[in-house]
Write a protein that binds this DNA or RNA. Structure first.
Lengths: 121, 121
DNA sequence: CCCGATATATCCGTCACGGATGTATCCCGG
DNA sequence: CCGGGATACATCCGTGACGGATATATCGGG
């Protein structure tokens, strides 16, 4: 719960690291290391988050109210070291706005023919 | 002219400022102030580039070989103060790759239903 | 039991951002 | 003809994100 949910606009544009973390959390809560792995996976290895960027970004995002730590899930065999995070309402809103911004950039690029037609796959 | 055109991949991800400048130069050469105005226009006022970001980015982009100064066009009534720039081949390639990266991010977001269907307009 | 992968944390050098400030020219209205 | 706002470029510098290096510790398979 974010206190008196502030305007997401003031947080834009999000950095690539922050955007990817929020996107990784869109499918459910996750712990830090899993986030890094997922980002690496869904960017096809193009982006690798080292610990500095990962935990640095997480800390800043908590301060900004974009994410928050979630209670540890008691799944059997869960690694005790893990710390889970979830996106706040503010985080989800900020991600949505950022994505719309990116969408527009891509749309402008298409109109200017610096990009081909939308990817078929 | 960029010396021995390097791999555009090493320059990714581009910052929003750099991406917008390259996008503004996609339709033809332009001078600094015009670039700033165009970015403000095609982001619907959401992004405003102050002189620090504008000329700072331009300088860094020249160093990186993404853009280069172009000969002044002798158009009648041209303002003598203006300095024109054009995107290099490296710059165009880097922009294209960056845009494809953004495209994938948006596509992933759609697959995860954090974004609605493609904008109709 | 050994070791690579998993997992988190912190430090710190580097660099981009971006507002403030400065200078000068252009051009329109009065 | 002249005043001033918009145009145009340049530099300075504080703030903050990035990201590699380093440290520590646990997990799990062979």
């Amino acid at each position: 719960m974010s206190r008196r949910d502030p305007d997401p606009s003031s947080l834009l544009p999000l950095t690539p690291a922050v955007t990817h973390i929020l996107l990784a959390l869109a499918t459910g809560d996750a712990h830090g290391y899993a986030i890094a792995k997922e980002v690496e996976e869904l960017t096809e290895g193009q982006i690798r988050m080292g610990p500095g960027t990962l935990y640095g970004s997480i800390g800043r995002m908590i301060d900004a109210g974009l994410i928050e730590e979630s209670p540890r899930r008691p799944r059997s065999g869960d690694d005790e070291r893990r710390r889970y995070y979830r996106a706040t309402l503010l985080g989800r809103r900020a991600l949505e706005r950022e994505l719309r911004r990116l969408e527009r950039v891509v749309a402008v690029a298409r109109a200017r023919r610096v990009l081909g037609r939308p990817e078929p796959a």
